[in-house]
């Protein structure tokens, strides 16, 4: 793999969440990650990671206050890989019902809904979900919907770390590439929509399987650079 200059990753900082673990995971994968609040830096990056924890409404307000909402929409439209993680995934959606109704970035059509507590096999499944859980490949029968995405090569049923109370419900089920069960809810845990990938879990906190997500991103960026052309739109499900 050519390593002349590491691909530059903009990790979007809107004042919420732990960005350190994302930058460490990027570094581990050979990516040059910089935490930034600058819309210009976001637009100029080779790929953009939108992490985040906290409340949806506060996060959208913080993005707007910095002009990052328009920058992220620009990135999504430009074909540059955009990765949403946890709250970052939810922010990509049209709207959220967390503590009221809030408009999201509307990069992926759909809504954000609450997980419901439940009891399974006599055990309380409390909200927030805080644990490792499995990603099950989702898509038309027989299709490897993970091929060409950052989940490429990971085994169906791989465990990742989740920490959330809400989940996304994309309007178009074809963007869904992985689902996860919690209690009685089966929810979209990863989606690919053109150049946009998003997951509800935290790959940067999910051990070596999670680091593979960042390595896949690095490989893809190196390949794109080697071809000196735009990064192809991956995600067969959305095409």
């Amino acid at each position: 793999m050519p390593e002349a200059v590491s691909p530059r990753i903009a990790v979007v900082d809107f004042g919420m969440g732990n960005l350190h673990s994302v930058t460490q995971a990027c570094a581990q994968a050979g990516l040059d990650a910089a935490v930034t609040t600058s819309p210009a830096a976001v637009v100029a990056a080779d790929a953009v990671v939108l992490p985040g924890v906290g409340a949806f409404g506060d996060a959208m307000a913080a993005l707007k206050a910095r002009g990052l909402d328009d920058a992220l929409r620009h990135v999504a439209a430009s074909g540059t890989p955009l990765v949403g993680i946890c709250l970052g995934m939810q922010l990509l959606m049209t709207e959220s019902r967390e503590f009221g109704r809030f408009q999201g970035l509307d990069i992926v059509t759909g809504e954000v809904a609450w997980l419901e507590p439940s009891v399974v096999a006599g055990r309380a499944q409390k909200v927030p979900q805080v644990n490792w859980n499995r990603l099950h490949r989702f898509g038309s029968a027989g299709a490897d919907t993970w091929a060409g995405t950052v989940l490429d090569g990971l085994p169906d049923g791989v465990s990742m770390y989740f920490l959330h109370s809400l989940y996304v419900r994309p309007a178009d089920p074809r963007v869904v590439i992985a689902t996860t069960g919690y209690g009685t809810t089966e929810f979209c845990s990863a989606l690919q929509c053109g150049n946009v990938f998003a997951c509800q879990c935290h790959p940067e906190r999910s051990g070596s399987a999670g680091l593979e997500v960042y390595r896949n991103l690095a490989r893809r960026l190196h390949r794109a650079r080697a071809r000196k052309e735009d990064v192809p739109h991956a995600g067969t499900a959305s095409q």
Partner: peptide, 22 residues
């Protein structure tokens, strides 16, 4: 808004308790 209400049902598995953290 259209939702995925039924879209994920095809993938429904028997619910199992979430993994317990050590």
């Amino acid at each position: 808004m259209v939702t995925e209400a039924n879209a994920l049902e095809g993938s429904a598995r028997t619910a199992v308790g979430a993994p317990l953290r050590i």
